[in-house]
Every structure is written in structure tokens, then in C-alpha cells.
């Protein structure tokens, strides 16, 4: 892995479910856990609402990373929304892999009590994507 690009601050879009990961992010906040400011969170009700098109769209818009957070398998507020989400994300990443974009997409199961995990993942992701460098689509005319 090459070294982080100088001065590059990645833009990461996070899709989180309302019940677990968003609450986990809140917990990171209440416990004052600092993490890099690269993430912009979009709240969905369930990771099941994550239409892979959102990810494609935002990657083509030039986002450097996409984070998807949901409840742990088996703990979905809507019983199985995250099971479907998992299949969709796996399919999507398999497709993105062909174009070297899969490393920019990461999904994690983060529960409402895992504020630390949220912050840790944010940190890791910011670092990983810094190493990857900017999304080649960033300044493209689409």
C-alpha cells in the first residue's frame, strides 16, 4: 500500500440505519470519541433501504469512500432488512471490484452500543482511503 497522499482529505459518504449504526455514531458523540471529519452521514431507516444505486451515484459524483452501516445480522429492527442489504452490498462490491472501486466501499455492522467501533471504523476508513488516493472520478466531467 502506498503512502497517504499529501494533504488529501477524502470525502466519505456514510449511509447508516436509524436504529443501530446512527445510534452508534451518536454514542461515539456522547462519549466524545474523536474521529476524522471526512464522513457525511445520511440517515436511512434500515440498511435494507440502501439502494446500491446510491453508492454508484455518489462514487460517480466523486466521493472517495462510501460507508454503509447497519445492525448486526439477526438484530435488524425490521427483522431481516440487513440480511438483504448484505447480499446487495456483496454483489455491488463484486461489480465494483472489476473497476478497482470496491476498496472505497466498506460496510460494517455497528450496534447502538458500539460507539467505539463506529469511531474506530471512521478512523480506519479515513486512513485507508487516504492511502488509496482521490477517486479518479472526482474531477471528471460526467
Amino acid at each position: 500500500m502506498e503512502e497517504a497522499k499529501e494533504g488529501f482529505e477524502p470525502k466519505i459518504i456514510g449511509f447508516t440505519c436509524n436504529w443501530c449504526t446512527y445510534a452508534g455514531a451518536d454514542l461515539a458523540g456522547t462519549s466524545r470519541k474523536k474521529y476524522p471529519p471526512n464522513i457525511r452521514i445520511i440517515r436511512l431507516m434500515c440498511s435494507g433501504r440502501l439502494d446500491p444505486m446510491f453508492v454508484l451515484k455518489v462514487l460517480l459524483n466523486g466521493a472517495d469512500g462510501v460507508f454503509i452501516g447497519g445492525c448486526h445480522p439477526g438484530e435488524c429492527h425490521y427483522i431481516k432488512g440487513n440480511f438483504y442489504a448484505r447480499r446487495r452490498i456483496a454483489a455491488l462490491r463484486t461489480i465494483l471490484k472489476q473497476f478497482g472501486l470496491d476498496d472505497r466501499v466498506r460496510s460494517e455492522w455497528i450496534s447502538a452500543s458500539e460507539g467505539d467501533k463506529f469511531a474506530r471504523v471512521m478512523k480506519e476508513m479515513a486512513e485507508d482511503i487516504k492511502k488509496l488516493g482521490p477517486n479518479p472520478m472526482r474531477d471528471k466531467i460526467l
Binding site: 455514531a25 451518536d26 461515539a28 458523540g29 456522547t30 466524545r32 474521529y35 471529519p37 452521514i41
Partner: peptide, 12 residues
């Protein structure tokens, strides 16, 4: 918009 938990409390 969650300025407290997502900005003030977690960033500089």
C-alpha cells in the same frame, strides 16, 4: 441535522 453528536462532540 445532528451538529452535536456528529460534529461538535467528535471533531476539532
Amino acid at each position: 441535522v445532528n451538529l452535536r453528536e456528529q460534529c461538535a462532540w467528535v471533531h476539532e
